[in-house]
Design a protein around this nucleic acid. Structure first.
Lengths: 150, 150
DNA sequence: CCACTAATGCAACAGTGTTGCATTTGCCGG
DNA sequence: CCGGCAAATGCAACACTGTTGCATTAGTGG
C-alpha cells in the first residue's frame, strides 16, 4: 500500500487525518478512503452500505454521522445538500478544483459541466454576515439535450 | 380574471388558483396568500406556525404538505432545498423578481436573504448549450447565526 | 339542490439526523 | 512497555421532515 512516490492523491488517508490534528481511528480512515475513492459525493446511506473492509465490522450509523462531522470540522471533507434534501459528503481535495470555476447544470440529463471561467467577486454583504462559499450555477440544456429537444 | 385595476400583484390568490384549474379551497388560498406575502421562501414548519387566520382552525400537517405539492404541480409555487436539507416554497410570481438578484443562504438557519446586487453576466457557453437560468448563490452564516456561533 | 370527485383530517409509518450515556480505544507521558 | 486521560465508539432512544392509506368532508358542475 505504501507508495514510494507520493503526490497528494497518494497520501494515505491516515496521514491526512493525523496531519489534521485529530485522532486516527479505523472509522475515520475507512470513511476518508471511501470519500477519496468516490467520483461523486456520497450520502450517509450510501456509505453505510459500504462493503465492510477486510473482516471489519460495519460502522455504526451514529458513529458514521460523527465521523463525517469530524472530517468536515477538520477540513478534510465537505458537506452539501442534494436536490432531495439529503446531505452528501466529498473529500476536500476533490472540491478544491471545482471551487474556482462556474458550473453548468443540464436540466435535461442532470449532467454537470465545468466552464473555464472564474466566478465573479461577491457583492458587499450586510453587517454581520460571513461568507463561506460562492456558487455560480448556470442552468439550461447542454448541446446533446438541446439537439434532442428541438 | 382581468380586474380593471389589476396588476399581477393584486390578483386574489383564489383567482390564481381557479385559473390554474384546480379546486379553490380554504387551505390553498391561505397557503398561497402566505407564500405571496412572504419576502423569503417558507419552509413547511414556518407555514404550519402561521397565525390561524380569522378564527380558522390551523391547517393539518399532512394537508399542508399536499396543498404545497398541488400548488407546485399547477405552477403556482416553486420548491427548493435550503442548506439544511429542508424544502422551501415560494410563490411562482416572486421568482421573476428573484431571478434578478443574488441570494445569500445561511448554513446555520437555512434562511435565504436577498442581496441588492445584480448577478454578473454569464460567461460564454460552449457551442449548442442553451442557458435557461442563472443562479449566483453565496453561502455562509447570517448575522444572527454568526453571533451565536462566535 | 345533488352527486361526483377532489381535498381534508387522522393515524401510522419511513428516512434522516441528533442526543445521552456507558464503554472502548487512540495517544501521550512516564 | 505501561497506565491514564480525553476523545471516539456503540447502543438506545428521540426529534424532525416527509409520505401513505383510508374514511370523511367539501368544492364544483350539472
Amino acid at each position: 500500500m505504501a507508495r514510494a512516490s507520493a503526490t497528494a492523491e497518494d497520501t494515505l488517508s491516515s496521514e491526512l487525518i493525523r496531519a489534521a490534528g485529530v485522532k486516527v481511528t479505523r472509522g475515520r480512515v475507512r470513511v476518508l478512503d471511501a470519500l477519496r475513492a468516490a467520483r461523486q459525493p456520497l450520502s450517509h446511506a450510501e456509505m453505510e452500505a459500504l462493503p465492510a473492509g477486510a473482516g471489519d465490522a460495519a460502522i455504526d450509523r451514529v458513529t458514521l454521522y460523527r465521523v463525517l462531522d469530524s472530517l468536515v470540522a477538520c477540513g478534510l471533507a465537505l458537506k452539501a445538500v442534494d436536490t432531495r434534501g439529503v446531505f452528501r459528503f466529498s473529500a476536500a481535495g476533490a472540491q478544491r478544483q471545482h471551487a474556482k470555476h462556474v458550473h453548468f447544470r443540464c436540466t435535461g440529463c442532470g449532467g454537470v459541466f465545468c466552464l473555464k471561467a472564474e466566478p465573479p467577486p461577491p457583492p458587499r454583504l450586510p453587517r454581520g454576515f460571513r461568507l463561506q462559499q460562492v456558487e455560480f450555477d448556470l442552468r439550461g440544456l447542454c448541446a446533446g439535450c438541446g439537439a434532442l429537444a428541438s
